[in-house]
Write a protein that binds this DNA or RNA. Structure first.
Length: 579
RNA sequence: CGGGACGUGGCUCAGCCUGGUAGAGCGCUUGGUUUGGGACCAAGAUGUCGCAGGUUCAAAUCCUGUCGUCCCGACCA
């Protein structure tokens, strides 16, 4: 491709709208342009990289036994009602009406569609296992689209769904996808690590996320340096808080004391009260399926909402409003507690770290008052003990006892073992050998294609621009003649080299613009082509050209060796991404 | 949805506080000089200052509303 024949609108300055480096580079290197918040047009270079990521994903999915299909983006809401997710995913669903007034939804994901297909087309155990996948646009009504392609209203996703006749077979499918994912990201030149994950509204009981370590990520991951444990903090566990919960009772009974104006754990921990946070019980009020519930965690802990949701098996979980709280406890946030004044119908869920806690301080369910000398076993009616706390950095790993670290990461892939949640609801069943009907056991596997593309940029860049891994670079080689005058030796050689490289199957972009060398060099570095071959009059006079790998050292090459050397360089580099 | 910031030429931004005929750099056009790291000189074009109301003799500037963009938060009771 000739630079002048495509469209590469590079930007010298950083657009004000982009905060993180990968978003800035997407715009500066002329890969995408924004239509509106969370909606982007892919320009030629961006599209080429996108297609390369897709091709890698497709190749590995096919290799892992996937069958490619393409499902509708527009879907009837009925199947969403059937699966029950019309309720649980309402916030993320884009809905629209046709001229007859009938409602439709834009698919945020395709479990319902594929499960219905399997329900209709498959009947016998002989027809499994199957793994269907597609690369499709997804639509999600994001609360706040941000960071360019990272969290967008519309994005491209590879989603795959496995169907098996047994749990063991489903597990094998899951492992096959897990391995495929490892290969996919490696081939994209991305360093990722898998972590145990919460399953969220997708459902299921076993799940890993593939994470790209990055400060700009939207996930926190707890991990052990041994490599033996890593989990999303939404799911992570540890040996418990570093400061042990006091468990020796003084024998004293709960005593009310005035705390006017004190509504935070922090205020109680300061003068004149001086009650350390770990000796306090934090009382939270949630609205769950069955009504109001009290949640107790230690004062220095944070409730982990995903843990709460997954353990209650509750769909609609949210913090209670101030009014709801007052209606059921007759006190306002800041003075809440579970010692007294809790209606019998209100369940109390307490975090395991509070088991046996003694001498604790908690709200009295009376504004401006707290209790001290609270022994939880004696003084609080706990309905159920659950793991509800969020792991904190430094706590000990359950596998190795080493201190856990926490870092930010970008989620680029997610594999789930779904079980029979969808197959039961949408009637995807099969007849087994003994003539019995069983629900199909499912798994689902997603990769954010557009997000992966941006994650590559986030991970592969320097002060000059993008440093594409060869496997996903828009072009492998940037051919840079420093003169484009038709009769100049540099230009004539460039034309020749260009033809030869294309014939050799190298993806090359010829910078045929009549620009000064500085402009061409800067643009080629910004756009991040893996290697540049510069042809200038000065070195040409010595019979030489210059090979400059992006981020590497310059190599002087004899004119007659130029094509061979570039082919060799690219071939060597390509081999690094073959797995 | 709550909080904050910002909307001025294609891009980055100044001007707003203290109202008085809209600016700079980059980019663009033309001509010339340059030609190995985002050139230089000269001449030019490009704005209903996001939009709608209001205050005022006069609004980019003050007020109200609205739309858009970005950031933070949305468990810390």
């Amino acid at each position: 491709m000739r630079w002048s024949q495509t469209f590469v609108p590079t930007l010298k300055e950083t657009p004000a709208e982009a905060e993180i480096v990968s978003h800035q580079l997407l715009l500066r290197a002329g890969l995408v342009r924004k239509l509106s918040g969370g909606l982007y047009t892919f320009l030629p270079l961006g599209l080429r990289s996108l297609k390369k990521v897709e091709a890698i994903v497709r190749a590995e999915m096919d290799r892992a036994g996937g069958i490619e299909v393409l499902m509708p983006a527009l879907q009837p809401p009925e199947i969403w009602h059937q699966s029950g997710r019309y309720q649980t995913m309402v916030d993320a669903l884009y809905k629209l009406k046709d001229r007859a007034g009938k409602e439709w939804v834009l698919g945020p994901t395709h479990e319902e569609v594929i499960t219905q297909l399997v329900a209709n087309e498959f009947n016998s155990y002989r027809q499994f296992p199957r793994n269907f996948y597609q690369i499709q646009l997804k639509f999600r009504d994001e609360i706040r689209p941000r960071f360019g392609l990272m969290r967008a209203k519309e994005f491209i996703m590879k989603d795959a769904y496995s169907f098996d006749v047994s749990d063991e077979a489903a597990m094998a499918s899951y492992r096959r996808m897990y391995e495929a994912y490892t290969r996919i990201f490696a081939r994209c030149g991305l360093r990722t690590f898998p972590v145990e994950a919460d399953t969220g509204v997708i459902g299921g009981n076993y799940s890993h996320e593939f994470m790209v370590p990055a400060e700009t990520g939207e996930n926190d991951v707890a991990y052990c340096e041994s490599g033996k444990y890593a989990a999303n903090v939404e799911k992570a566990v540890s040996r418990g808080p570093l400061l042990p919960t006091p468990v020796v009772s003084s024998g004293a009974t709960p005593e009310k004391f005035p705390t006017p104006g004190v509504v935070t754990i922090e205020a109680l921990s300061k003068a004149p009260y001086q009650i350390p946070a770990f000796q306090q019980i934090k009382t939270l009020v949630y609205r769950i399926d069955s009504g109001i519930a009290l949640i107790l965690v230690r004062g220095d802990d944070h409730l982990n909402e995903p843990k709460l949701i997954s353990q209650l098996g509750s769909n609609a979980v949210r913090p209670a409003t101030s009014e709801e709280i007052f209606a059921s406890l007759a006190a306002h946030p800041g003075s809440l507690g579970a010692v007294s004044g809790v209606p019998a119908a209100v369940p109390v869920f307490a975090d395991l770290a509070l088991q046996g806690a003694c001498g604790m301080v908690t709200g009295a369910n009376e504004d401006g008052n707290h209790y001290r000398h609270v022994d939880i076993a004696r003084d609080i009616r706990v309905t159920k003990w659950l793991d509800l706390r969020t792991v904190q950095a430094g706590e000990h790993c359950v596998e190795t006892d080493l201190p856990l670290k926490i870092r930010r990461a970008i989620e680029v892939g997610h594999v789930f073992k779904l079980g029979t949640k969808y197959s039961e609801k949408l009637n995807a069943t099969y007849l087994s050998e003994d003539g019995q009907r069983h629900p199909v056991v499912m798994g689902c596997y997603g990769i954010g294609i557009t997000r992966t593309l941006q994650a590559v940029i986030e991970q592969c860049q320097d002060k000059d621009g993008i440093r594409w891994p060869l496997s996903v670079a828009p072009y492998e080689v940037c051919l840079t003649p420093l003169s484009v005058a038709p009769q100049s030796p540099a230009w004539q050689l460039a034309e020749q080299v260009y033809r030869d490289l294309e014939l050799a199957g190298i993806q090359v972009i010829l910078d045929d613009r009549d620009e000064r060398p500085g402009v061409k060099f800067k643009d080629s570095e910004l756009a991040g082509f893996p290697v540049r071959l510069a042809i200038g009059e000065k070195s040409l006079a010595k019979g030489e050209v210059e090979l400059k790998p992006r981020g590497g050292t310059l190599e002087v090459v004899k004119v007659e060796d130029a094509v061979r050397r570039v082919v060799e360089w690219v071939t060597t580099e390509r081999a690094k991404y073959v797995i």
